[in-house]
Write a protein that binds this DNA or RNA. Sequence first.
DNA 1: TAATAAGGCTAAAAGTTATTAGCTTTATTA
DNA 2: TAATAAAGCTAATAACTTTTAGCCTTATTA
Lengths: 195, 195
Amino acid sequence: MSTKDKILEEALTLFAENGYDGTGVEQIAEKVGIKAPSLYKHFKGKEDIMNALIDSAEAHYESSFGSSEHIGKLPESRDDFVRTTMSRIAFTMHDPMIRKIRKFLVQEQFRNDRLAEITTRHQLVGIQKMYEKIIEGMMKSGLFIHDDPALLAIELVSPVVLWVSKADREPQYEQEIMECIEKHIRHFCDVYMKE
Amino acid sequence: MSTKDKILEEALTLFAENGYDGTGVEQIAEKVGIKAPSLYKHFKGKEDIMNALIDSAEAHYESSFGSSEHIGKLPESRDDFVRTTMSRIAFTMHDPMIRKIRKFLVQEQFRNDRLAEITTRHQLVGIQKMYEKIIEGMMKSGLFIHDDPALLAIELVSPVVLWVSKADREPQYEQEIMECIEKHIRHFCDVYMKE
DNA sequence: TAATAAGGCTAAAAGTTATTAGCTTTATTA
DNA sequence: TAATAAAGCTAATAACTTTTAGCCTTATTA
């Protein structure tokens, strides 16, 4: 990995943990294994590092939810739906990179309009749009009752977003949280699936 | 209002806007109308101001959701439920004090365990426990179908929490957001209310 | 191989920030 | 009214932070 990439990686880790203002360039440099002034061979300044990070958060969003490719084939049963949804959530919750981006965004969301907009996309648009399509498909294939897929996607995803953000701040409850999430998803199926 | 209270008020405003690390004691003092060293006649230091603010956020939570008194009488019809719920949300969303506490907590939630725990209580426990009781009561009075009140409260409240936090970062969309929320609540009633 | 560029370093400038010391004024109370 | 406490101020300290300047080594390339 190039030094430039390593700087971005360590900066994201530190920003996620202590916020932008709570992190010094010296700390970043130390984690990379260089001295602070050497950072300036790769970036114009601290703000420039942050902007590059925002770009990469944006790129990450695009590659995760930008196209509809990522849906794969539609779940074919209730159990299939619960299983694929839970594993998607477990992945999102535990993947270190995704977790750092989430923690970074949530702390810096008020810094500027671009960060605000990206945070909304990550929290409200991304997974929800995806599940809108999945649910819509499953309505057509007769597994879900007919209803507004957008509203159902919101009802499915919102509690998950809140629980995952609880897990970000209180990781000791991860297991209970996963149980709550599964209970919620099963209840969702009880209400909106046929039979 | 005492100088001490004014310091807390202005500190909260600034912390909500720029975060703890993004706010200087000089800025706080200026807004209060004194010089920075005078702050130290009222607080031991910057951290002490923050701790007092956390106490007041805690007290605010207690007075809002600590007792069951705040439910008032149960809604007696679907329209009544939608109306009272929407007005509670509008109040929570617009009240400047509540908004500042929300923005402060969301930015500082990772700073220490106490902040993490209070953030969870504000975001996940507070309104949800309240609606758990309301929904439970309305199940008994036959307005809602019989189901787990805790799960229903989560489904009702979670999307609202996410939309309100979007309104905090992008206030220009407040109106659309209120429309989305109302649509969601009406849909919730369609699904879980009798007739 | 010689020249050049990339990327590291030290030293230090320049600015900011939280905090303390000590003085003065205002308000409280004995 | 006199004494004391509270709360303000200026000046200064001390630490920290970001960034620049200039030098040296290593790698690339003509």
